[in-house]
Design a protein around this nucleic acid. Structure first.
Lengths: 78, 78
DNA sequence: CGTGTAAGGAATTCTGACACG
DNA sequence: CGTGTAAGGAATTCTGACACG
């Protein structure tokens, strides 16, 4: 039953921003586009996992390569 | 050069409190006693690693077993 | 000694919107 | 479309102190 560390949602957006080099705006936008799914604290603060950070960096790379968020969403279940 | 995830200081005290079941007061006290060494954000907010969380739980267990923080500090370099 | 708490301030995050295009 | 920004409020964290003992 213990969840692997990579999937534990414990990191706040400020740290994610530092680790990825992306703006909080970008990170929140990817969530808006249904590409990342952070948890929320009782107060509504977003919590990400290390896996989410990987995903976010991947999203940004693909956007840089010309993809659109809608296409990335389609690619999800593959 | 990449640091292992277990040592990345990215978790704030609120989450550490949830994961360990300890109060923030207790967690801060262990730092005061030089038993844990979180990083700090520019604004002074504490950031812990998964390894720190292990350490904190271990400290609390030992305190429960009758040890004192001073003794735990001595045990550190062994 | 190790921990609880009330106190006031500061850092961090949140949302919705306007902007560009 | 994807991202920047200013705006105001809310959640979270910080420190130093008093308390018990």
């Amino acid at each position: 039953m213990p969840m692997s560390m990579t999937k534990k949602k414990v990191i706040q957006i400020g740290v994610v921003s530092e680790l990825t080099g992306l703006s909080e705006r970008q990170i929140r936008y990817y969530e808006d586009r249904k590409l990342v799914f952070p948890d929320r604290s009782k107060g509504g603060v977003r919590k990400y996992s290390f896996e989410d950070i990987q995903t976010i960096m991947d999203i940004h790379t693909k956007l840089t390569n010309g993809y659109h968020t809608v296409e990335l969403k389609r690619m999800l279940g593959c």
